[in-house]
């Protein structure tokens, strides 16, 4: 598995690991926006910053989804 890092865009992540789409959907409500619609081309760190999301938790959740 290629390491997932915060510089990767949402598109980078979901295109490599389709199973992570569900993770982003889970975060839509916290963000108050559809992340895959509105931030598809943005890096994870920037998305987390913009929507005040916990980046470490987001990364953990993504990696957990990929590991399953």
């Amino acid at each position: 598995m290629e390491n997932i890092n915060a510089q990767m865009t949402i598109l980078d992540v979901v295109s490599k690991y389709r199973e992570t789409e569900a993770v982003f959907k889970r975060y839509d409500q916290k963000a108050g926006a559809c992340l895959c619609c509105e931030e598809l081309f943005e890096p994870l760190w920037k998305v987390a910053e913009k929507y005040h999301l916990d980046l470490n938790k987001l990364m953990y959740d993504i990696e957990e989804a990929v590991a399953i």
Partner: peptide, 12 residues
């Protein structure tokens, strides 16, 4: 298809 579906299919 909702996002990111169309982009992923286009990318493929």
């Amino acid at each position: 298809l909702a996002c990111p579906g169309p982009v992923l299919r286009t990318k493929d």
